[in-house]
């Protein structure tokens, strides 16, 4: 998928002021790279090449450095995803508690054909993720920024409906 409209810069007005405040926390501009990439993703939903170029410019970095960093971290989306991004933990402790059934339920109820694919209505993308750090609350699911503990397959239809 490509962007259909011209790229809207992130770092203007309030967002620029927020970045300027973040920059005061660090001794150099580069250290604000992860926070800046988060701001881009919060605004656009993903991080495009044009966004990386903007970040490079505001932080005095090369676009190559920004891309190298953006592609290292799995939470940064390098392509558009569904309106709601669903991450289900399937690492061993959750796995033995039935996490794979939770994944199957999410795929079924969101209409996503497969992991990583976006549903035809553009609403959801479902992904299996590595340990979410809530192993005693199996199965933890992260929907956008909402961290939900103890999800079982029978809870999935209601959860999906809530975000639809």
């Amino acid at each position: 998928m490509h962007q259909k409209t011209e790229y809207q810069p992130v770092f203007t007005g309030d967002q620029r002021r927020k970045l300027d405040e973040i920059l005061t926390r660090y001794p150099n501009k580069q250290a604000a790279l992860l926070p800046a990439l988060w701001m881009v993703q919060d605004t656009h939903g993903w991080i495009s090449q044009a966004a990386m170029a903007e970040v490079a410019e505001v932080l005095d970095l090369t676009a190559a450095h920004v891309e190298g960093v953006a592609t290292f971290y799995t939470m940064f989306h390098k392509h558009p995803v569904g309106e709601h991004f669903i991450q289900v933990c399937t690492t061993s402790p959750c796995n033995v508690c039935g996490a794979e059934d939770v994944v199957a339920a999410f795929l079924q109820h969101t209409g996503c054909d497969e992991l990583g694919a976006t549903s035809p209505d553009g609403k959801f993308t479902v992904l299996e993720v590595e340990c979410l750090g809530a192993c005693g609350f199996a199965t933890p699911v992260l929907i956008d920024d909402d961290f939900i503990d103890g999800v079982t397959p029978d809870m999935v239809p209601e959860l999906v409906a809530r975000y639809r």
Binding site: P35, T74, M75, F76
Partner: peptide, 12 residues
């Protein structure tokens, strides 16, 4: 004494 949160982005 200054203290800031730095958010990671998915990397064990």
């Amino acid at each position: 004494i200054d203290m800031f949160v730095h958010r990671g982005a998915g990397a064990y």
